[in-house]
Each structure stands twice: as structure tokens, then as C-alpha cells.
């Protein structure tokens, strides 16, 4: 039996509740949460979808660390497992946090290829070498789980702060050889909520379940925006 201590919230008050779960080898925290929901308390609220580390729905704080519940083995965690919602997000109910703002920030950085020759009637193949792909490939692996944002000290004190995930998405497209929207994105990234808010705590890279290295992306984006501003100032 493993004891699950869950931080719950019913819209008014926040409290801890414990459940005993018969853990077996191979059981994930997400499965344990489903076990609790099915056997003890059907009102327990949490978000999940793919159960295979792809959708990014199930990030939560497990034994003080943000992790994907579906990718975390219960038996690696000891006899007591503490489950809490992510920090830096508003809690809606139990383990469910408000993600609208997070996705809005994502949208704000225009995370899609911008081309001058966009023509859907006559689509054209855009070639790219493996080296060019490698420039940004690792940053495409982000599943928007919010783990990085939940540990970012800049996001802790500034709700509007773009945060590591959105800036990683911005860099991912700016570094894509097929993209022509750098200028627009640099402008967004160099706003007062962008790259200059990063204080290099670098915790985001430590917690990312996909090893996306958001801290690196933010700094590379900072480099790109800084040089682009410098260039425009010097009218290069």
C-alpha cells in the first residue's frame, strides 16, 4: 500500500486528503489517481488524456517536483506520495490548473511558419537539410505541459511573463530555415514580458519531462533579439 497525500481545492478552501492505494509494479501516478477516483472519491479532479507523455495534460507536482503523472512510476517514489497542482498557475479544482493564459502566451509568439510566399492553391515544397533541422529539432518536442512555467521565478511574480515554453516555441520557429517571421517574433520576444525577464535560474531545463532545454532556447532567443535590435540601431 502506498499512501497518496493529495492537495485538494473545492473552489473555496484548500486541504490535504490521504488515500491508500495498492501499488503494483508498473503503476503510474496517473493510474493511482484513477484508482482513487474509481474506488474512493469520484469527485477528485485532475487532467489527463494520452496516458503516454504526449499530450502534456497531466503535469502536476509529485513529491515536490513537477512531473507528468502518466510517466512517473509509483514504486520509485517511496511509501508516501505527495501530489499537488503546479505552482505559478491558478488552481481551478484539486489538481486542475488554469491553462488559458499559458496557451494565450503560446499563441502570442506566432508558433507557426510565416512565409511571404504562402499560397495554398499552389503549395511548394520547402527543402531543409538535416543540419538545418538540427538547429531547432529539440525545441519541437515541447508538449506544453507547463512544468517549466511552474518553476520559473520570473513567472512567479509576473503573470504576463511569456515564460520558458512560449519563448522556446518562438525560438523554435525563428531558428527554422524555412521561416520568414523572425522580425515579428523578435518584437514580441523583446517586449517587457519577454526574453529580458529571464534571470537564468535554469530550473525550467531541470524539470522539463521532454528534455527540451527551454533555458537554452530562451537565451538563444535573447541573443537573436539582441543582435537584431543592435543591427536595426546601427542600420546594418
Amino acid at each position: 500500500m502506498v499512501r497518496f497525500k493529495i492537495r485538494r481545492y473545492d473552489g473555496k478552501k484548500s486541504y490535504w486528503q490521504s488515500f491508500e492505494v495498492p501499488a503494483r509494479r508498473g503503476m503510474t501516478v496517473l493510474e493511482a489517481l484513477y484508482y482513487i477516483k474509481e474506488n474512493y472519491d469520484s469527485s477528485l479532479a485532475f487532467r489527463a488524456s494520452c496516458r503516454m507523455g504526449i499530450c502534456g495534460s497531466c503535469a502536476m507536482k509529485i513529491n515536490d517536483k513537477p512531473r507528468l503523472a502518466c510517466e512517473t512510476q509509483v514504486l520509485t517514489l517511496g511509501n508516501t506520495v505527495k501530489v499537488e497542482p503546479l505552482d505559478n498557475f491558478k488552481v481551478i479544482k484539486d489538481l486542475i490548473t488554469e491553462f488559458d493564459g499559458f496557451f494565450e502566451k503560446h499563441k502570442a509568439v506566432k508558433p507557426y511558419l510565416i512565409r511571404k510566399d504562402d499560397n495554398y492553391a499552389e503549395p511548394k515544397e520547402l527543402l531543409q537539410s538535416p543540419e538545418e533541422l538540427n538547429e531547432y529539432y529539440v525545441f519541437t518536442l515541447c508538449i506544453k505541459c507547463g512544468a517549466c512555467y511552474s518553476v520559473c521565478p520570473a513567472a512567479a511574480t509576473l503573470d504576463e511573463c511569456l515564460g520558458p515554453a512560449a519563448m522556446t516555441a518562438a525560438y523554435r520557429f525563428c531558428a527554422d530555415s524555412r521561416d520568414e517571421g523572425q522580425k515579428e517574433r523578435y518584437e514580441i520576444a523583446s517586449s517587457s514580458n519577454g526574453v529580458w525577464r529571464c534571470h537564468l535560474a535554469m530550473e525550467c531545463s531541470e524539470v522539463c519531462p521532454k528534455n527540451v532545454e527551454p533555458a537554452k532556447a530562451v537565451q538563444l532567443l535573447r541573443r537573436k533579439t539582441a543582435f537584431s535590435i543592435l543591427k536595426s540601431l546601427l542600420r546594418w
Binding site: K61, N63, D64, K65, V151, P153, H199, L200, A201, M202, E203, E206
Partner: peptide, 9 residues
Amino acid sequence: GRSLFSWAF
């Protein structure tokens, strides 16, 4: 639950 990087920060 944080790494040494957070301590340094």
C-alpha cells in the same frame, strides 16, 4: 524539490 540552480538564483 528544486535543483541547485534554484538555490544559486
